[in-house]
């Protein structure tokens, strides 16, 4: 399709209202999804809840391959398919739903910088721990990742994924890092976030933005996911304002919304609670 035609289609899509049957796709929650995918998926869910856009969560074993970018989660809205938080934020904006409209240019730049920090530090650290730490990869990541497939495809796909992530780590210079250094990086990232948040309810005072959704997705998932060691979650637990930030978003956007909506069951997708 030509660029003009594609632009036309997205214009048309923008004109359509948010449909009732919008669906978010992610890997199987019980046996397959990994920390990093779970965090990204939760960030998108939190963002959509903050925008008050209803979405049904559907778990598919082949979610990763269904996604146009090869990354989860992705949403299917009308006849559009959009993957990952960044493009989804753009997509909702085109439909007239935005959380960052109230920010000025400086704040918006700052928000983007912090989102980059979270993606570069927390997400990369999650990927590192999942695939480059031998204990985690052999005990958790590879068995979970390959659980929907039968022998010998399960081994082939798991090692293929591990090799792909390790190659990426090589490219960005993380391959030489030790686990302690990675924990240290996470700790520094959390410190930066904690300082920026201070005593405010959200990063930009009273109103949540996509940065809040992203930080919540990652921190909440790390806090509630059991890995081979607790060290990663311990790093976050030392910042009490981040903990209460997670608790606040969980209460406001997940527990209360679920209580409000009668069809709460289909929206339950976040997994374990903080308390």
């Amino acid at each position: 399709m030509s660029l003009a035609a594609e632009a036309f289609v997205s214009q048309m899509a923008a004109a359509e209202p948010w449909p009732e049957n919008a669906t978010l796709y992610q890997p199987l929650r019980e046996h397959q999804i990994l920390l990093s995918d779970c965090a990204s998926s939760l960030a998108v869910q939190a963002y959509l809840r903050m925008c008050n856009l209803p979405v049904r969560v559907s778990c598919r074993a082949n979610a990763e391959y269904m996604s146009p970018s090869g990354k989860v989660p992705f949403i299917h809205v009308g006849n559009q398919v959009v993957s990952e938080l960044g493009p989804i934020v753009q997509f909702t904006k085109a439909k007239g739903h935005s959380l960052s409209d109230g920010l000025d240019d400086v704040q918006r730049a700052e928000m983007k910088a912090y989102m980059e920090l979270v993606n570069n530090m927390l997400l990369t650290a999650e990927l590192y721990i999942q695939w480059c730490d031998d204990t985690t990869s052999s005990e958790i990541s590879r068995p979970r990742y390959s659980s929907p497939y039968s022998w010998p495809l399960n081994h082939i796909l798991a090692y293929q994924k591990q090799w792909e992530v390790r190659r990426k780590m090589n490219a960005i210079g993380w391959a030489g890092k030790s686990l302690e250094q990675v924990y240290e990086d996470v700790s520094q990232c959390c410190q930066a976030l904690s300082q920026r948040l201070g005593t405010q309810p959200y990063f930009f005072n009273k109103q949540p933005t996509e940065l809040d959704a992203l930080v919540f997705g990652h921190l909440f998932t790390i806090l509630t996911t059991r890995l081979t060691s607790d060290e990663l979650s311990e790093k976050i637990k030392s910042y009490s304002n981040l903990l209460s930030f997670c608790r606040r978003i969980e209460q406001t956007y997940f527990e209360e919304q679920d209580r409000d909506s009668q069809s709460g069951a289909s929206h339950h997708s976040k997994g374990p609670s903080l308390i």
């Binding site: 399709m1 598919r60 074993a61 082949n62 146009p68 299917h76 398919v81 796909l157």
Partner: peptide
């Protein structure tokens, strides 16, 4: 056979997208 299915284009219908992925 290890079969890998994928969409030929972004505009592929969702029914085809749902079939994407690996199977043995």
């Amino acid at each position: 056979v290890w079969r890998e299915l994928g969409c030929l284009a972004r505009t592929a219908s969702f029914a085809v997208r749902e079939e994407s992925g690996h199977s043995l």
